[in-house]
Nucleic acid binder design. Structure first.
Lengths: 350, 350
DNA sequence: CCTCCTTGTGGAATCGATTACATCGACGCG
DNA sequence: CGCGTCGATGTAATCGATTCCACAAGGAGG
């Protein structure tokens, strides 16, 4: 592979001049520039990004460590992150932590070793020493979706509180009173927040969230199945189940069917995180939709701001309720008791 | 960030000795080794992968360029690729081509500039000059899923012929005679092969595949919708539609529903590529399942073999039919006319 | 006791770029 | 006419590692 020296030789100039042409430095004669460009063309020369990075201490690369690539929510997040990064002249290396802190650390270490310019993380846990060290060492970092409390890093996320209130209003309006939740890992902020928001919304309706209506999941389908089975085994099972993410909702759907029961007739189901497939499931699933693409783009912008010396900003965007059929047929337009803007009703079928 | 020089100073040895300890070269005294290790510890030193790569001309990084990350098939492929690569000591940089040749070239160029050790590609088109140049220049490369004819590069893929025959037998057994296909882009091998396999299987049953029963799609949901609408507008619409990938099947499902028709009562539907969601759609969709994880792992092994100087091997694994309910209720066990092993029947619901 | 080989170590070149500094003409102005 | 300035260019240092080569010390063998 041709190097800058070969180009210099071919063009009959020094390497410095070649470098100047390539980085369009002003003081290069038109003649020299033309000769260099010609040499680049004939040799098919491409600058070695590795060498350039070593010298300039910039890789123009961002690291993205997410909890689970197979989760459509994170897939979409990754996609939007890559798009925005590309638009800003950066590449992205994705690390899949699979909800495992050790894998998360592996990826963070790897990315740091590769001297990425900045790190986008959706932390699996409360923050390993490695990650805290990286922050302390001044690695540009931004948390997306989830974050670590007490760490001074910008956070880009969706706020689901209002949407959860809308959901509870919706369920209440359909006559459901015994509402249960499949929670995410307590080590994640999203795991905690969604339970808190749900409990709070229930209280507004004078409803309680008993301990045995809180199932401990891990954001994976299998846990949704397990927890739901537990719910169905209770003396008085819940009338509605709210899964804190889309995969656990899928597991819940499985469990309900395995009992020969039907959604929504026998039990209502709703999920946090909307995904395209929810339109096509049987029945279409009511969900809380995050502005995923916007989150990814905002996170990249914040990180690049930080990298390029501008002050980065935390961003919080609202999530919204998308009503489908998994909680029961929607009654003719009813006014929810709460004063929030009414939930968006999405055509699940034309 | 501490460099090897700092470690050398701290340990009171030369950089050469530090390097030897780090790469566990045999001739280092136990004393020196201990002092270096201690220095590494106190300084929290981590070798700079960029510098190392420049010197050794190896990045221990693989590039993976796929057509569409949002397609669950490719997501799973990417995941298995990353896992196997990690097990072998490599990292993976993923580039999403979004079925666009220009984007594909962008990523290939980018990865080449970063001097990745090898490239895994699922080509979007028939092969750009850039890609052909890369092959000619000796870049270790392996094609996965799709390939480019006439290029001497190992291919790791699934063979769907037998499974397509099984599918046609299944459809025929259910009484369907007018069978249509939503094809993928003609520029892709998978696009062509699936149509060819389908036509061939039909012939075995004395069935024809007329021109207007071949819809031109692009592996995206929207094209599945469009093509299906075209089918339904025909004077004699097909009785069954076979979508050449999962997203187009989803589009087809949409289109059928938009007409107020039902699957499988009004029209049967099957898809190439099985995904977890197909179990949960209404109705569960009959599909041809590829051994995706195996493909990803085999592709990585082939590429790493090539990189490390061992002869790489092309691999072809069989796909298999997974029968669910989207083509009609399965009749009591029937013997298909063809002599192939009978299709696997998967419990779509317990 | 003197070579010769082995083992441990350091010095310095190298990978492919960027960039500070030096040099050298040409040009403008007093 | 001479001097300072500016534009164009080359030389060489540098980034952080790896690795070839030289060399010193110590042990084995004659």
């Amino acid at each position: 592979m041709a190097s800058i020296k070969d180009v210099a030789a071919e063009a009959g100039v020094s390497v410095a001049t070649v470098s100047r042409v390539l980085n369009d430095h002003p003081s290069v004669s038109a003649d020299a520039r033309a000769r260099v460009l010609a040499a680049v063309e004939t040799l098919g020369y491409r600058p070695n990004a590795v060498a350039r990075s070593l010298r300039t201490d910039q890789t123009h690369t961002l690291g993205l460590v997410i909890s689970d690539v197979m989760n459509p929510y994170f897939t979409e997040l990754a996609r939007s992150v890559e798009e925005e990064a590309r638009a800003l002249g950066y590449s992205v290396i994705i690390g899949n932590a699979d909800e495992r802190p050790d894998l998360q650390d592996h990826h963070v270490r790897n990315l740091l070793d590769r001297r990425i310019d900045g790190l986008l993380v959706s932390p699996t846990d409360g923050g390993s020493p490695l990650m805290l060290d990286a922050v302390r060492a001044g690695t540009p970092m931004v948390f997306v979706d989830r974050w670590i409390p007490g760490v001074d890093v910008p956070v880009v996320r969706a706020d689901g509180q209002a949407a959860v209130r809308d959901l509870v209003a919706h369920l209440h309006g359909l006559g459901h009173r015994r509402l249960a939740i499949i929670a995410g890992p307590a080590a994640t902020t999203t795991g905690q927040e969604r339970v808190a928001a749900f409990r709070e919304a229930l209280q507004a309706y004078g409803l309680d969230l008993p301990e045995d209506y809180i199932g401990q999941g891990d954001f994976q389908a299998e846990s949704g199945r397990r927890v739901t089975e537990g719910f169905l085994d209770l003396a008085t099972p819940p009338e509605a189940v709210f899964a804190a993410d889309n995969l656990m909702a899928l597991g819940a759907l499985d469990a309900v069917r395995a009992r020969g029961m039907r959604v929504p007739d026998d039990i209502a189901l709703a999920a946090f995180d909307d995904i395209p497939w929810f339109v096509h499931t049987d029945p279409p699933i009511t969900a809380i939709a995050q502005p995923t693409g916007e989150l990814g783009r905002a996170a990249v912008r914040a990180l690049v701001d930080r990298i390029e010396g501008r002050p980065p900003q935390s961003v919080t965007l609202p999530a919204r309720l998308v009503v489908r059929r998994s909680c029961g047929e929607t009654a003719p337009p009813e006014r929810p008791a709460s004063p929030q803007p009414s939930p968006v009703t999405n055509r699940s079928q034309t």
